[in-house]
C-alpha cells in the first residue's frame, strides 16, 4: 500500500515538474533568444519577466475553442491528447538520481525501471508521431495535412538513425536497462568511446523534436503553422507542451546514455542531472538562434544517405572493438 502511495506521489510530482519545466522553458527560450539578438525579451511580468508563461497559459485557457466544421471531431480532439500523453509517459523510465531511502523503503528516482528502458523510450516517443499525422488529417485543411505528412516522414526517417546510434551504447554497456547503463559510466562517460554515436544522436534528436534547422513541419512561409494550423487555445498549447516535453525527454536520454546520467563530483546527483539536461536545452535554443531551415529534399537525403550508414558503421565498429578486446 505504501509503495502504491509513493508511486502515485512520484507520478504526480514528475508530471507536474515536466509541465512546470515546459512553462519555464518557454520563458527561458524567449529570454535567451532575445540575448542572441540584443533585445531585452519579456520583462514586464514579475522579475525579468519570469511570470510571462503564467500569463500566456491563462490567456490560452480563456480563448474560444474553435473546431472547424469540416474537421473529424473525434480524431481532431484525440490528436493533441495522444501527443501530450506520449510525451509525458516517455520520461517515466529515465533515472534522475540514485535510489533514496524514505519511510523504510528504497525509492528509485524514476517511475519505473524495466530492463528494456531504452526500447521503452523509443516505443513511446514513436507513438508521439500519431499527434501530428492524426491532427493534420483530421483538420481537413491542406496546410495541416501537408505539415502532418512532412512531420511524420521526417520523424520516422530520423528515428532509424537514432535507434542505430544508440546500439553502440548498448554494446558498450551490455544492457538496455537505463540504471545499468548509468552505473557502467561511473568511471568513463560513453561520450568518449561513442563520440560518433553521440554526434548522430544529437543531430537526430533535434530532427525528432521538429526543432530548427529541422523544423520543416512548421515552415510558416509555406505551410502557415503546419499540422496545428486549425488548433486554438489550450489544444494548440498541448502540441507546444508535447514538443517541449519531448525536448526534455530526448535531452534526458542523451544525458543518461552518453553523459554519465546523474554521475558527477561534489554536487548532488539530481543537480548534476539537471545541469546536463539544461546544457542540451541551451543547445536547442542556440541552434534555433544560429541556423537557417534546411530544404526538404536535403533533409531526407541527409537522414537516409548519411546518418543511417554512418550509424550502422559505428555499430559494427563498436562490435569489432568489443569482440576483439580481452
Amino acid at each position: 500500500m505504501l509503495q502504491v502511495v509513493i508511486v502515485v506521489v512520484k507520478s504526480i510530482v514528475t508530471a507536474t515538474l515536466l509541465l512546470a519545466a515546459f512553462g519555464l522553458m518557454t520563458w527561458i527560450e524567449r529570454k535567451v533568444l532575445a540575448r542572441f539578438q540584443f533585445r531585452p525579451g519579456p520583462n514586464r511580468l514579475g522579475p525579468a519577466g519570469v511570470m510571462q508563461f503564467m500569463a500566456d497559459g491563462l490567456k490560452l485557457a480563456l480563448k474560444e475553442e474553435i473546431i472547424p466544421t469540416a474537421a473529424d471531431r473525434f480524431v481532431y480532439l484525440l490528436a493533441p491528447l495522444v501527443s501530450l500523453t506520449a510525451a509525458l509517459i516517455a520520461f517515466a523510465v529515465i533515472p534522475w538520481g540514485p535510489p533514496i531511502h524514505l519511510l523504510g523503503q528504497v525509492v528509485p528516482m524514476q517511475i519505473g525501471g524495466p530492463n528494456i528502458g531504452v526500447l521503452f523510450v523509443f516505443a513511446i516517443t514513436s507513438l508521439g508521431v500519431y499527434g501530428p499525422i492524426l491532427g493534420g488529417w483530421a483538420s481537413a485543411n491542406k496546410y495541416s495535412l501537408l505539415g502532418g505528412l512532412r512531420s511524420t516522414a521526417q520523424i520516422i526517417s530520423y528515428e532509424l538513425a537514432m535507434g542505430l546510434a544508440v546500439t553502440g551504447v548498448l554494446i558498450a554497456a551490455g544492457s538496455a536497462d537505463l540504471n545499468t547503463i548509468v552505473a557502467r559510466q561511473y568511471r568513463l562517460w560513453f561520450i568518449v568511446p561513442q563520440i560518433v554515436g553521440f554526434i548522430i544522436y544529437v543531430i537526430t534528436m533535434v530532427a525528432e523534436t521538429n526543432r530548427t534547422p529541422f523544423d520543416l513541419p512548421e515552415a510558416e512561409n509555406e505551410l502557415v503553422a503546419g499540422y496545428h494550423t486549425e488548433y486554438t487555445g489550450l489544444k494548440w498549447a498541448m502540441y507546444m507542451m508535447a514538443e517541449y516535453i519531448n525536448m526534455i525527454t530526448v535531452s534526458a536520454l542523451a544525458t543518461t546514455l552518453f553523459l554519465g546520467g546523474w554521475h558527477g563530483p561534489l554536487l548532488p546527483p539530481e543537480l548534476w542531472f539537471l545541469l546536463k539536461v539544461a546544457l542540451f536545452m541551451y543547445f536547442f535554443i542556440w541552434l534555433r538562434a544560429t541556423l537557417p531551415r534546411l530544404r526538404y529534399d536535403r533533409l531526407m537525403a541527409f537522414g537516409w544517405k548519411v546518418l543511417l550508414p554512418v550509424a550502422l558503421l559505428n555499430t559494427l565498429a563498436t562490435a569489432v572493438w568489443v569482440a576483439t578486446a580481452q
Partner: peptide, 11 residues
C-alpha cells in the same frame, strides 16, 4: 511495469 501503468493512467 505496475508503476509505469499507474503513471500512464495519471498522465
Amino acid at each position: 511495469y505496475f508503476p509505469i501503468a499507474l503513471y500512464i493512467a495519471i498522465a
